[in-house]
């Protein structure tokens, strides 16, 4: 067990270094941020050059890379050109918002998807099952940004029930969380349903059924418990997807979280912020994968020996 954990930890660290290299070089393939930062009416070629020097963009790429890696190892993620603030500060200001939003969306997705998926999976072919499949498919076939605009239109502009933008309190998160959850709802309904279907066909369940246990007991004790093991592996990954999906939702609802920030950084070609954000998100994802694996290996000992 310990050996497995250590190995996974080592793998994760290697992954993170790989991500660092990848992101740094990817971002530098194009463009020059100085041209974007300088005011246009006053830009002579010499002044652009001066600006590049001041920002350290004139050094050889490998020098910039070594400097960056060293900084990252010391916990210094650099200085955001766009926000004119240390990247660490910028990210930590935005992180709680995105975490809250994603968690809410996940909660909504689980609340809606699990019952639907279980109901569908328990009685395949019934109308309830068709409903579950339909919700699953619609959830995956609806573009989140489209849904977001519709939600604003209906619940903010016409009904005046909820705010149309911003983060001004708990109610501000309701519409964005719903819009963000739609994809996860679809995915989770489908996964729950097929997990339940699969388990339902396992021998021990069939035995239980033949022993005359009520469908409810079977559902509760056997199917739900085993399906939840399958879900654990997915929920973590879905969570990272939700964070990524916040790129759209946060831009539409004017929510200053990680997704909004990534969009801003890309549009302003803030090298430092793009690479640090991508690295940060990758780190987050790797940690979630690691945590998922650990939980999973505890729940299902077979995994460790794979």
């Amino acid at each position: 067990m310990q050996r497995y954990l250590l190995m996974r930890l080592g793998q994760s660290l290697l992954l993170l270094f790989g991500a660092l290299v990848l992101v740094f070089w990817m971002v530098r393939l194009t463009g020059d941020p100085a041209a974007l930062l300088i005011a246009r009416d006053f830009a002579s070629p010499e002044q652009l050059q001066e600006m590049r020097t001041a920002l350290g963009l004139n050094d050889a790429l490998h020098v910039q890379f070594i400097r960056y890696t060293g900084d990252v190892l010391r916990g210094d993620l650099g200085y955001s050109l766009r926000f004119r603030q240390p990247v660490r500060e910028v990210i930590f200001a935005a992180l709680p918002i995105t975490l809250l939003l994603s968690t809410l969306a996940m909660a909504i997705a689980l609340t809606v998807a699990i019952p639907l998926g279980v109901i569908g999976g328990v009685s395949p072919g019934s109308w309830k099952d068709s409903l579950a499949r339909l919700v699953g498919l619609l959830g995956q076939a609806t573009p989140t940004f489209w849904l977001a605009l519709i939600l604003i239109w209906v619940f903010a502009v016409n009904l005046r029930w909820l705010p149309s933008f911003g983060v001004d309190g708990p109610h501000s998160f309701i519409l964005p969380a719903f819009a963000l959850s739609i994809g996860a709802v679809g995915q989770l309904v489908r996964l729950t349903r097929s997990a339940v279907l699969e388990i339902r066909n396992e021998d021990y369940i069939r035995t239980a059924r033949s022993k005359g246990l009520s469908p409810f007991t079977i559902g509760l004790h056997h199917i739900a418990r085993n399906a939840s093991i399958a879900l654990v592996s997915v929920v973590g990954i879905q969570f990272t997807y939700l964070m990524a999906g916040s790129i759209y939702i946060e831009s539409i609802f004017a929510i200053p979280g990680i997704g909004w920030m990534l969009n801003e950084a890309i549009r302003n070609r803030d090298f430092v912020l793009v690479q640090s954000l991508t690295l940060f998100i990758a780190t987050f994802a790797v940690l979630i994968h690691l945590a998922t694996d650990v939980i999973y290996s505890v729940l299902d000992p077979r995994i460790r020996h794979r």
Binding site: W153, V157, S164, F165, G166, I252, W260
Partner: peptide, 9 residues
């Protein structure tokens, strides 16, 4: 508010 539809709302 970056999204113009949202501003409009």
């Amino acid at each position: 508010i970056p999204e113009s539809s949202t501003r409009l709302a």
